[in-house]
Design a protein around this nucleic acid. Structure first.
Lengths: 192, 192
DNA sequence: CCGATTTTGGAACAATCGTTCTGAAATAAT
DNA sequence: ATTATTTCAGAACGATTGTTCCAAAATCGG
């Protein structure tokens, strides 16, 4: 009946994601996308819709894969508190290694206050991570590894907020050692 | 000899600042600025230079006034540790009250990685606040109000990073109570 | 009042924005 | 081979981007 798509939509979406991630939404033009994705203008509109819709798909893809990364980190841990520690260390490591600021954080500060769809994606993603941490902290409290006086919800949000703080710190100073020490202090704060 | 300026440059800069603050750099157009500042195109270019130069002046103005606000907060405090507490509480309060995300944080994530001038302004401003906190923490350590084991530099950077975390938390959840509790936990973390 | 200098509103600029459309080439199933 | 659908390169769209320029009005010091 018809010709097949000559490209892998997910693979090209990955390229779009990389570009949006690097430049931000407003600073990325459709021309940039055409060149980076190596796709025709029409093909982009046919496959992904307009620029905004394309961006939402990229953001969702980014959010999902980071969440999956945190989930994998949890699975490998030997105890609840070790899992929390691992997640924090992993966040610090990603900040240093990725070479550019978390797409979620960038998008939050650029768009979340004026774009309800972006806000919804980021809120859901944040809640997912917070929920994982909250459950781990509850278990850690039962095991006596975290003070029972603390509210797990506050602790979990505190940790996730600190991840944004990691990006800010590294963006301004680019000092891996400082970041590591901040992460270590965060772990200590949670434990005792 | 010549006609005087019919407007107060600083007053109009304030309006530009408000607009950049609200919309971000890339999403603010020159047309927006003309309308919001109530000034002629030519007058803007004559007085402030091009869009980018105007933005830098706005950002500097914002950074200076927030730093002054923190300095005032310190002066009113009765002890070093109280001053640190006050600064943290004040940051949380501002997050809740101002209705829009800190211009410094927004600009950092939108521009700092590609705009060296913006990066320099923000780095200097951050260093200023970190320095104030560091001195206060040293004094607090001498007074036995903060554990001497901690590195004041790490603590100070940890606190400032948490301010960015405050904005993220409030941007995503808009929950004043949660933020207050995060701030309280931050204070506790520093003290013990 | 006069001459110098600004402000002002708006026209004009080339460039780019996101988006749509065209028409021809390519490829799939019938 | 025919037909249906997609890809492709690029033209074209009106709108908007940042910036410059111009002539007229306004206001100052002498």
């Amino acid at each position: 009946m018809a010709r097949n798509k000559a490209f892998e939509p997910e693979e090209k979406l990955e390229k779009a994601k990389d570009l949006f991630w690097q430049k931000g939404y407003n600073a990325t033009s459709m021309q940039d996308l055409v060149e980076t994705m190596g796709l025709n203008r029409g093909s982009i509109y046919d496959t992904y819709g307009d620029k905004h819709t394309l961006f939402l798909q990229c953001l969702r893809s980014y959010a999902d894969s980071t969440f999956e990364d945190y989930q994998r980190t949890v699975e490998e841990a030997k105890s609840p508190i070790k899992a929390v520690e691992k997640i924090i260390k992993r966040a610090a490591l990603r900040t240093i290694a990725e070479g550019r600021t978390c797409m979620g954080v960038k998008s939050a500060f650029e768009l979340a206050s004026v774009d309800e769809e972006v806000h919804a994606i980021l809120k859901e993603n944040t809640t997912n991570i917070v929920t994982v941490l909250k459950e781990l902290l509850k278990k850690a409290q039962k095991a006596g590894e975290v003070s029972a006086k603390r509210d797990p919800a506050v602790l979990a949000n505190f940790i996730v907020s600190n991840f944004t703080g990691f990006w800010q710190s590294y963006l301004v100073y680019g000092d891996p050692e400082l970041l590591q020490r901040q992460a270590e202090f965060l772990v200590k704060s949670i434990k005792k």
